[in-house]
Computed example of a mutant assay.
Amino acid sequence: MIEVENLNKRYGKKVIFNQLNTTFKANAVTILLGENGAGKSTLLRMIAKLERQDGGAIRYFGESLSSKALKERLGYIPQDIALFEHMSVSENIDFFRGLYKNPIDTERINSYKKSLNLFEDKARVASLSGGTKRKVNMLIGLLGNPEIIILDEPTVGIDLKSRYDIHRLINELKQNKLIILTTHHLDEVEAIGDTIKLIGKDPFYKEVLIEKGWPFEDILQRN
């Protein structure tokens, strides 16, 4: 479980979070839903220790972890494609795998490739479709065998088949991982979400969730 306690964050005079409190359960997919600029990506980056909060605490399975300790336990998969375009898929995998002390083995990599329908090992990343790049991007984030997986808009702008492949792997991973992701796709919420956390002030998302009868937590309203 990840516990967020009394989290504060502001950019200049703009307050993003004021005494935010919430928790994220293990062995489940938690979806952050809300409008652009609501703070979804900021929260993910603070959980991943890529950005500092102005106050409050974040605990991981009951522990306060340093950035170095968290790196071995968390996989962060950003919305931007973080790959070397001039290198092949295999070369990217080999490079990023070498950054971890205890990376997953070749058998696990091949299992993830199979789930993702990812078989373009020798192709240069620059030549791949947007959907295939996103699948490689996701695989790179799993190379350190993380307990916690954070995905920021993992299927934005890609075809339906690639989205389906990514959904399949996420549903496999959540059996023993803590997964948090952001999305604007309501069908994605229905396909892979176990818990919905609403973040933002636009009433649209709340109205849709109420209309569909999907339970959710309005995490800003709690504060």
Score class of each variant (00 low, 15 high):
Leu50His: 00
Leu50Pro: 03
Glu51Thr: 08
Glu51Leu: 01
Arg52Tyr: 09
Gln53Asp: 06
Gln53Tyr: 11
Gln53Val: 13
Gln53Ile: 07
Asp54Cys: 11
Asp54His: 06
Asp54Met: 04
Gly55Tyr: 03
Gly55Cys: 02
Gly55His: 03
Gly55Ser: 03
Gly55Leu: 05
Gly56Ser: 05
Gly56Phe: 04
Ala57Pro: 07
Ala57Asp: 11
Ala57Met: 08
Ala57Gly: 15
Ala57Glu: 05
Ile58Asn: 10
Ile58Cys: 08
Arg59Thr: 10
Arg59Ala: 04
Phe61Pro: 10
Phe61Ala: 10
Gly62Lys: 05
Gly62Pro: 02
Glu63Phe: 03
Glu63Met: 12
Glu63Val: 04
Glu63His: 08
Glu63Ala: 12
Leu65Phe: 04
Leu65Thr: 04
Leu65Ile: 00
Ser66Asp: 11
Ser66His: 13
Ser67Ile: 13
Ser67Tyr: 07
Ser67Pro: 14
Ser67His: 15
Lys68Cys: 08
Lys68Trp: 07
Lys68Gln: 09
Ala69Phe: 14
Leu70Gly: 09
Leu70His: 15
Leu70Cys: 11
Lys71Tyr: 14
Lys71Leu: 10
Lys71Cys: 06
Arg73Trp: 01
Arg73Thr: 06
Leu74Gln: 14
Leu74Val: 09
Tyr76Glu: 12
Tyr76Thr: 11
Tyr76Trp: 12
Ile77Gln: 03
Pro78Asn: 01
Asp80Ile: 00
Asp80Gln: 01
Ile81Trp: 03
Ile81Gly: 02
Ala82Pro: 01
Ala82Glu: 05
Phe84Met: 08
Glu85Trp: 14
His86Met: 09
His86Cys: 12
His86Ile: 11
Met87Arg: 09
Ser88Tyr: 01
Val89Asn: 07
Asn92Trp: 12
Asn92Met: 03
Ile93His: 09
Ile93Met: 08
Ile93Val: 14
Ile93Glu: 10
Asp94Glu: 15
Phe95Asp: 13
Phe96His: 14
Phe96Ala: 09
Phe96Arg: 10
Arg97Tyr: 05
Gly98Gln: 00
Gly98Ser: 01
Gly98Asp: 02
Leu99Gln: 07
Leu99Tyr: 05
Leu99Asn: 15
Leu99Glu: 12
Tyr100Thr: 00
Tyr100Pro: 01
Tyr100Cys: 02
Lys101Glu: 06
Asn102Gly: 04
Asn102Gln: 09
Pro103Trp: 02
Pro103Thr: 02
Pro103Gln: 05
Pro103Val: 03
Ile104Gln: 06
Asp105Leu: 07
Thr106Val: 11
Glu107His: 11
Glu107Tyr: 10
Glu107Lys: 15
Arg108Ser: 13
Arg108Cys: 15
